[in-house]
Design a binder for these strands. Structure first.
Length: 440
RNA sequence: UCCCCAGUAGCUCAGUUGGCAGAGCAGGUGGCUGUUAACCACCGGGUCCGCGGUUCGAGUCCGUGCUGGGGAGCCA
């Protein structure tokens, strides 16, 4: 590390706190995002992960050796700048540093991501560097808050964190495709599509549990709403029924949105999010039976038949009718997985619900009340054509003290995309895995 | 798996009827005392995605393959 006139007596601070040090001399460490020059006055824009600040070099007011360093500094060079903090309305962020010295960690090579426009393919190829941009920084901070608020929500309500396995001997949902691994002797192992079945075991042991972890779907989906690897937040509650988890899901989503609005105003502004639309997200959400949603689609001119599941376009039409999230419940049994419990009053529908985010972001939550009858569950597994042996442990849960129970799964990336108001889920996770993308 | 669109300088793109390969940014050199994706002047920079075909002549037209993007189905 090359050091130039480093003064170790100075305070090292982060940019987000720079306002506390007005008129003091401090050191900020970070990366050069940009530089501009007007001859005898030169500007350096530094980011440190917490914010950006402009530093200013004035010929004659700073040692000439420091002034000339400007010429050697390239975009993304890592440096420490020491200078006096002053309030300056012309500077982005409201403060600037009047430079007294600069020390250099490294002069960066020619940086591929320039201040001009880039295509999505190029940016995804450089995802490891793209993460440094203000936009990605804002999205990932909001992701952090979404997960953090959600976990606090469950922790404060007596839920126990219960991590489900990633390797599973068989599929949880039967219909969708699985990633197969061949490590275990004499048997296949698959990457988890959902932790739910294991969470049901957890609920019978601990009462109220939740997990937050990655899930994998080997679907040939190429849309703005799909990732091959995504994160899901799944609560499961013993003795709960459909109504109870519908209320819980609503409370959770309201809490997450309020939490982001409270702590991430700056990030939402960076993303040009229409805050008013998020402020409208409050209880009660709209509640709608599947039958009424079908009626709504048919009234909107869509030729939709009772018994089908909604496609992405159908979900958009439904959610655009509402300015808040809408919860749709009691789907036909044929649309939903085997473990759903039928409505005793209407056996052709199951006690399930999907939560559709507004603005066409689609389904962010899916869940329901689980089948708790031993004989019914055995029949459903057989009817779905699933290997009974793989589900023996799951069926045991109905053999030894079965109780009504319910839970749901919230898709983290879709939730973050909606709250951020960005069109594609691929920017909501640090390194997205998509149909055509495994690198970097 | 199917449908649509694209592939030209490091990046984003233009390229007319088939007739010398272009611009902005990035990089380099110089200028400028308040810049905001600064600006001004000059310089270097090409497997026009691959293969085959039509033609005197193909970045341009035809066929085919590959890669990427968007969407459908499937799903959170």
């Amino acid at each position: 590390m090359k050091k130039v006139l480093q003064d170790y007596t100075m305070k090292t601070v982060t940019i987000e706190n720079i306002g506390k040090y007005e008129d003091e001399i401090v050191t900020v460490r970070g990366w050069l995002t940009h530089k501009r020059s007007s001859g005898k006055i030169r500007f350096l824009v530094l980011r440190d992960g917490t914010g950006i600040i402009q530093a200013i070099l004035i010929k004659g007011e700073v040692e000439d050796e420091i002034f000339q360093l400007y010429n050697t500094l390239t975009q993304e060079s890592s440096i420490a700048i020491t200078g006096r903090v002053r309030r300056e309305p012309r500077s982005p962020g409201g403060y600037e540093l009047l430079v007294s010295s600069i020390s250099i960690f490294q002069i960066a090579e020619n940086y591929p991501i320039t201040p001009k426009e880039h295509g999505i393919g190029f940016l995804m190829d450089h995802r490891h560097l793209w993460l440094r941009s203000q936009r990605q920084n804002a999205i990932l901070r909001i992701r952090h808050t979404v997960i953090n608020v959600a976990r606090q929500f469950f922790d404060s309500r007596g839920f126990i964190l219960f991590d489900a396995p990633i390797f599973t001997p068989s599929c949880c949902e039967g219909t969708t495709s699985l990633f197969r691994t061949r490590y275990f002797e004499n048997e296949n192992a698959y990457l988890s599509q959902s932790g739910q079945l294991y969470l049901e075991a957890g609920a019978m042991a601990l009462g109220k549990v939740y997990s937050c972890g990655p899930t994998f779907r080997a679907e040939k989906s190429k849309t703005r709403r799909h990732l091959t690897e995504f994160w899901m937040l799944e609560p499961e509650i013993a003795f709960a029924d459909l109504d109870e988890i519908m209320a819980l899901a609503e409370e959770l989503v309201v809490t997450i949105v309020k939490g982001v609005l409270k702590t991430r105003q700056k990030e939402l502004q960076t993303l040009n999010r229409d805050i008013a639309r998020l402020e409208r997200v409050s209880s009660p959400f709209y509640l709608m039976a599947y039958d009424d949603a079908v009626q709504l689609l048919q009234d909107s001119g869509v030729s939709f038949v009772w018994g089908d599941d909604f496609g992405g376009g159908d979900e958009t039409i439904i959610s655009n009718h509402f300015d808040r999230p809408v919860m749709i419940h009691r789907y036909p049994a044929q649309c939903k997985p085997f473990y759903m419990k039928n409505d005793p009053e209407r056996p052709e529908v199951v006690l399930c619900m999907d939560l559709l985010a507004p603005e066409g972001y689609g389904e962010i939550i899916g869940g329901g009340q689980r089948e708790d009858s031993l004989s019914e569950l055995e029949q459903k597994i057989a009817h779905a054509g699933l290997p009974a042996a793989d589900f023996a442990w799951y069926v045991d849960l109905r053999r030894y003290g079965s109780v009504p129970h319910a839970g749901f799964g919230l898709g983290i990336e879709r939730t973050v995309a909606w709250i951020c108001g960005i069109p594609h889920v691929r920017e909501t996770i640090p390194f997205p895995r998509l149909l055509q993308r495994l690198y970097p």
